[in-house]
Design a protein around this nucleic acid. Structure first.
Lengths: 241, 241
DNA sequence: CCGTGTGAAATCCTTCACAGCA
DNA sequence: TGCTGTGAAGGATTTCACACGG
């Protein structure tokens, strides 16, 4: 059904999965700019990766390209859309309506396309009742009562101390994917996916590298031949022990 | 100076670097809760990784532990603080004062410790002049004039269309590390670090996995023995061709 | 002739298993 | 005895190099 030749596909390597959304974005951009085909070299340049990697990645989805020509932008978009589930409907609940939660609600591109905001949860009585993005903020119980179906994705933007409880409630509501912005590793049942976005961690990783390159530029440069690499986000988790 | 035995250290593996902030957070928490030592097993449980991985990671920083006992929380924190540059001062400029930018300015834990907000840039005249987080929003020229020194880190929260220009300006100001929230791969000079946080990409990766596990649970479960893994963020980039 | 698709090689990371020290 | 530190094994991903097809 979803494999290269209709057979049961083995799971894609996680680094490949993380690059697919980038390829999708680039293909959409190329199409908007009028080019109907693009080569692995084009994709590689825009994504900041090796061309061989692009070909290997895309070949895992099937034979999408044409030898001597490249990839048809529209076909590539279709294939990636299908694989990333962009044709489906993904109801999203956000827990923690602070600054970050509000930013996500209002962010362009966050609730476009397949992802649909269906619930806003907060514990603070001062926030409950407020209307944002066409939804009224409620407690878990209130939101659960108003949901038509289980949310597919739960977004956690609470303080760290409330994150595990938020995860528990979201899983109880039926969410099987969590996007956690709180600086806490979550315990979730097997089969529940968790992705972590930790802003202070990002700063620390940057300052680690900055410390190192400073020290090196004082000596001799040691980072020779380092290819510009765009995105290899592999921070994911599958629940269970 | 920074190697295990005072010798020139080879660079740490990138996945290891991405885990160090987590170990740091866990050690701080343990210390706050009164335990002065913690084992690799403790760290592994809280971080959601394998204990062997913890030991391998930490052994790369030197011999921090004591056989038969574990790691001294305070010493571990010191070592990680030093390595991640937490003793230094990291001036940060934010470009793009929309919802996300404001969320970062107000977020607890984002501008605590080593990271210090020194400038806010936006192109919108309606936003320029506004005061947030103790800083007045200005154009690049205005902010540049008020800076005491070059910013170490630039945070980009502009729309995608403005991200490359923001990166150029930040590099011109002297920033050597960029944290980019815009869905765009940036071109930067060699030696400039870029990390990407792309929220819509996170959702797409989640929906990819959700699609797959749904299809599998209809058949037979194939994800057996998958260890819970916390964070392997490896999305980083070094400029240059 | 050009660019994809792909075995094979090389590299990187993780996990194992245990020696060694407190 | 208990837990770290680490060589070696194992697994996964990246890169190479080129056969193949349009």
């Amino acid at each position: 059904m979803e494999g290269p030749h209709g057979m049961t596909a083995r799971p894609l390597p996680e680094p490949t999965v993380a690059r697919l959304p980038i390829y999708l974005r680039i293909a959409e951009e190329h199409l908007r700019h009028g080019s109907t085909t693009l080569s692995s070299e084009d994709l590689a340049r825009d994504a900041g990766v090796n061309a061989a990697k692009v070909r290997k990645d895309l070949s895992l989805l099937g034979s999408l390209g044409t030898r001597g020509t490249g990839y048809d932008a529209a076909s590539l978009i279709d294939a990636l859309d299908a694989l990333l589930g962009m044709a489906r409907d993904w109801p999203v609940v956000i827990v923690g309506i602070g600054n970050l939660g509000r930013a996500l609600i209002n962010a362009r591109g966050f609730f476009t396309g397949a992802y649909r905001l269906v619930g806003l949860v907060d514990a603070d009585p001062a926030v409950i009742g407020e209307e944002l993005g066409g939804r009224r903020v409620g407690t878990f119980a209130q939101v659960a009562a108003e949901l038509e179906s289980a949310p597919a994705i739960g977004v956690i933007t609470t303080p760290a101390s409330a994150a595990q409880e938020a995860a528990n409630e979201l899983v109880a509501l039926g969410a099987r994917s969590l996007l956690n912005f709180a600086p806490r590793v979550l315990e979730v049942p097997e089969g529940v996916q968790v992705r972590y976005v930790d802003l202070s961690m990002e700063l620390q990783i940057l300052s680690y590298h900055a410390t190192r390159t400073d020290a090196q530029s004082a000596g001799l440069l040691a980072t020779v031949g380092v290819e510009a690499q765009a995105l290899d986000a592999v921070d994911w988790a599958e629940g269970g022990k």
